[in-house]
Design a protein around this nucleic acid. Sequence first.
DNA 1: GGTCTATGCCAC
DNA 2: AAACGTGGCATAGACC
Length: 579
Amino acid sequence: MTIVLARNSPTEVVASSVDAHGELLGEATVLPFDRLAGFVAEREGAPEPERWVWSDSSRWYGDLLNAGVRVRRCHDLRLSHAILRNSTLTAHTAFARAEPTAWDQPVEPPSAHVAPVHSTLFDLGETMASGRSAAREDSAAEYRHQLQALSEVPDAGRLRLLLAAESVGALIAAEMRHAGLPWRTEVHDALLTAELGPRVPYGTRPARLEELAGRIRGILGDQSVNPDSPPNVLKALNRAGLMITSTNRWELAEYSHPVIEPLLEYKKRARLLTANGWTWMDQWIIDERFHPDYVPGGAATGRWATSGGGALQLPKQIRAAVTADPGWKLVVADAAQLEPRILAALSADTAMAAAGRGTDMYAGIVASGVVESREHAKVAMLGAMYGATTGESGRLMPKLTRAYPRAIRLVEQAARAGERGEHVTSWLGRSSPAPGADWQEAQRLASQPGASAAEESRARSRARDWGRFTRNFVVQGSAAEWALCWMGEIRNGLRAIEQRSSTPPGRLATASGAVFESLPHLVFFLHDEIIVHTPEEHAEEVAQTVTEAAAFAGRLLFRDFPVDFPLGIAVVDRYSEAK
DNA sequence: GGTCTATGCCAC
DNA sequence: AAACGTGGCATAGACC
């Protein structure tokens, strides 16, 4: 049922079957690394799946995938540890109050220990044994401590769900990295050539940029202007009589001068070149697949981060390069207005949930007569969740507060708590970190008798900053939990499709080591959207699975509270065709 | 040479 | 229209 895997020595693993309290059942098995994949595969073949307990999914599972082995369930000790150490729900336990241990250390950056995507079993022992982390692990003890902490929480259902969701997220992150996002370098190159001119060696300007740079210099009458240097451009513009203080896009756009147009053009195209140009393509696209390093729980709110490759910021400009293989489709889905819907559920604001009954919550808010336009509804909602005080959004707040008092009260209370330096907690139990030492120091200085006006003002400003963070934390963090549950359920549904289909399931290793050659699989995740790459014959079934999973996630988190989670969903050949 | 910060902009 | 949340990343330029 549950097996703890731990490094026993630089070349060995110990596998221990444990009971519901984490206590050892029978004898532990010691095996060399090169037998681990077979050991796991054999047990995954059984009808009743094991739950594998291990230190870091990125390491253990990355290597298993490279060896052609998938697992169904795991408990990621490091991710769970971070949640349990910091949650207000466990704050009273010995687990949370203990001195920090090795489990509180951040995991090594993935690049340092994750094997190349297509490495083989041959590398397994070496990567597992590499670096300072080759020390013996006390994973079984850590697992017992975590279970003990959970047993001391009166109503731990949500927290248990959070740990399960976080752990399945870690499996999915490793699987997506392994499979990669289908990428057509030919399409990417054509887009770059159209925007920039033909490819040139690194460090030289493509023709289109060179031409724009020439125009900019000509208009300014200064051949020394370097459009890649903001300070240099700023000085040149000031000399030309444009009294701007920054060269950012929206400030430039406010002036009318012949140089503005070519300058904005230059910046836009130069950004494409440096961020997602040929250098990026060479580095990150391997065999027509993009393999980013996802970092589950990388943001304080529980959102994922990424490390390398910039998967969080794939510009819309190049999304046409994300293309399904011949005979395959992309199922692209995003949750419509996820965060406001989450807020409605968190606060049990039935009026706000009712406005979201259709597919467009902002339209629903307009239809309820709260504001006059969809744009107003959107700006006001975002402002409420981000803590806007000025401008359009600030002006609309009173209307929103009148219509949805419960929802607004929830975010306001979260903001006030943050301003006092307190923790706030997401729906399933992830808590915000404490503000840093310099924040505390600023507050302390301002509260002393002789504090200067500047100190008081600084402290108030810092307090409000932290309040905006905690205000957003409860919504963003709970939305991230919904997204994990959604994706976990999609993964279950895809496995069901796999088992219904005629393609033989199970171990599907190919010469390249790829596990996912012939079946629908997740290939991309970005906060509230997913992409599944699927054989065309399964595309409609996949779309239905993804849609049902959204409803499932809503029920899993909020039971019978009447809040909908509609999706924008499309079956397409290219990512750019969705929406 | 390397490290660090500021800038600007991409995504949700 | 404007400066309000979470991130990553490339570059220039200051600094060691």
